[in-house]
C-alpha cells in the first residue's frame, strides 16, 4: 500500500480493515480504557477544584493515539497541543506523574510548573504539551529535521487539530518538510470542532488529507474511531517517512465527547449528535464487542476494568496528596 508520491493525491484507505490478534485487541482495549478512565477522573477532580485553569479532555479520541502508538517504533517522537493527556499516557508516561502535574504538585512531570497543557518526557520522547494552537507543528517538523540531520531512523509524529490546520505556520512547515524530505508524520485529529466552530464554518477545504497536496505530500483519511484502521495507516505513513520519502499526512476522523474544555457548555452541537457517536462509533466499545465475540468473557473484561480503575485511583490519590512544589522552584529552570 505504498503511497504514490508523484500524484500526491489522497490515498484511499484499504478496503477491509486489517484484523487484530486477540493480544492486540486486549492491549488496545486496556490502553484506551486507561485514557478514558483517567480523563473521567481528571474531569471529576477539576469539578472538585483540585485541577485548575483549562483542562481539555481526550474522551472519544482514544483510538487515535493508541493506534499510532501501536505502529510506532522506539525512538519515534511525539508532540501535540494542549489536549495532551491521552498522548502522554499512550507513550507510557506514568499516570501518577501526569495526574500530579494536573493538580500542580511536585511529583508532576513538570514539577507542577507546567500544568495540563505543558508536560514533557524526554525519556518517552514526548515533546509536549503546547498551548498555542499550531505551534507544535513547526516544532514537530524541527524534530523531524533533527532526525534527518542525525540520520537516526526516527520519525516525528506531530499531532494537531482541525482548527490548528488553518494556521499559517502549518503550511510553512509542510513546504519545508517536503522540500527537505523530513521524516514527519502529521496526524490531524479532525474531531469536527475547534472550540465552538465546526469544520465547515472554518475551513474552505474540509478534507484535511488533501491539505498537503500543493506541496506533494501524500495524505489519507482514516477512521479514527477504529484503532485497527489507525494502526494500519500509521504503519504505512511511518514506513514512508522512515524510508526517506518525506512527510505524510493522516487525517483522523474522530470526535470529542466532552466540551472543548471544562467550562464549555457545547451549545454548538446537538445532544443527539454526541449520543450517536457514543453509541455507534465508540472506539472502546468496538474493541469490547469484538473481544466478547472472540470468546473473552465479561468477567475477563471486568478484571481489566478493575485494574484500570485501580491505576487511575492510585494516580488521583497520589496527585491529591503529593505536596505542592517548594516555593524556591519559582526561580529554578529559567535559564541554565
Amino acid at each position: 500500500m505504498a503511497a504514490r508520491k508523484s500524484t500526491a493525491r489522497t490515498e484511499a484507505a484499504p478496503a477491509g480493515v486489517p484484523t487484530f490478534t486477540k493480544e492486540q485487541e486486549l492491549l488496545a482495549y486496556r490502553e484506551m480504557l486507561l485514557i478514558r478512565r483517567f480523563e473521567e477522573k481528571a474531569g471529576q477532580m477539576y469539578g472538585m477544584g483540585l485541577i485548575g485553569g483549562f483542562c481539555h479532555l481526550y474522551i472519544g479520541q482514544e483510538a487515535v493515539v493508541i493506534g499510532m502508538q501501536m505502529a510506532m517504533k522506539q525512538g519515534d517522537q511525539v508532540i501535540t497541543g494542549y489536549r495532551d493527556h491521552g498522548h502522554m499516557l499512550a507513550t507510557g508516561m506514568e499516570s501518577r506523574g501526569v495526574m500530579a502535574e494536573l493538580t500542580g504538585r511536585r511529583g508532576g512531570y513538570s514539577k507542577g510548573k507546567g500544568g495540563s497543557m505543558h508536560m514533557f518526557s524526554i525519556e518517552k520522547q514526548f515533546f509536549g504539551g503546547h498551548g498555542i494552537v499550531g505551534g507544535q507543528v513547526s516544532l514537530g517538523t524541527g524534530l523531524g529535521f533533527a532526525n534527518h540531520y542525525r540520520d537516526n531512523g526516527a520519525v516525528s509524529v506531530t499531532y494537531f487539530g482541525d482548527g490548528a490546520a488553518n494556521q499559517g505556520q502549518v503550511y510553512e512547515s509542510f513546504n519545508m518538510a517536503e522540500l527537505w524530505k523530513l521524516p514527519v508524520v502529521y496526524v490531524i485529529e479532525n474531531n469536527k470542532y475547534a472550540m465552538g466552530t465546526s469544520v465547515n464554518r472554518a475551513s474552505a477545504q474540509t478534507d484535511f488529507s488533501k491539505r498537503g497536496s500543493s506541496f506533494n505530500i501524500p495524505g489519507e483519511q482514516v477512521d479514527g474511531m477504529d484503532v485497527r484502521a489507525v494502526k494500519a495507516a500509521g504503519e504505512r505513513a511511518l514506513a514512508f517517512a522512515r524510508e526517506g520519502k518525506g512527510p505524510y499526512i493522516l487525517e483522523m476522523l474522530t470526535y470529542r465527547y466532552r466540551g472543548h474544555s471544562m467550562s464549555d457548555p457545547a451549545k454548538y452541537r446537538s445532544k443527539e449528535e454526541v449520543q450517536k457517536m457514543r453509541t455507534e462509533h465508540d472506539p472502546i466499545e468496538q474493541v469490547r464487542a469484538r473481544l466478547l465475540e472472540g470468546g473473552v468473557t465479561e468477567d475477563d473484561l471486568k478484571k481489566i476494568d478493575a485494574e484500570i480503575r485501580e491505576i487511575v485511583n492510585d494516580a488521583a490519590d497520589f496527585a491529591t496528596h503529593d505536596p505542592e512544589p517548594d516555593p524556591s522552584e519559582l526561580y529554578t529552570d529559567i535559564v541554565r
Binding site: G112, E324, Y331
Partner: peptide, 16 residues
C-alpha cells in the same frame, strides 16, 4: 510580577 514565566502550581502562581 516576578521575573519568571508564569508557573501552574497554585502556590507558585500566587508567588509569581
Amino acid at each position: 510580577g516576578k521575573d519568571v514565566p508564569m508557573p501552574y502550581a497554585a502556590n507558585l502562581e500566587k508567588l509569581a
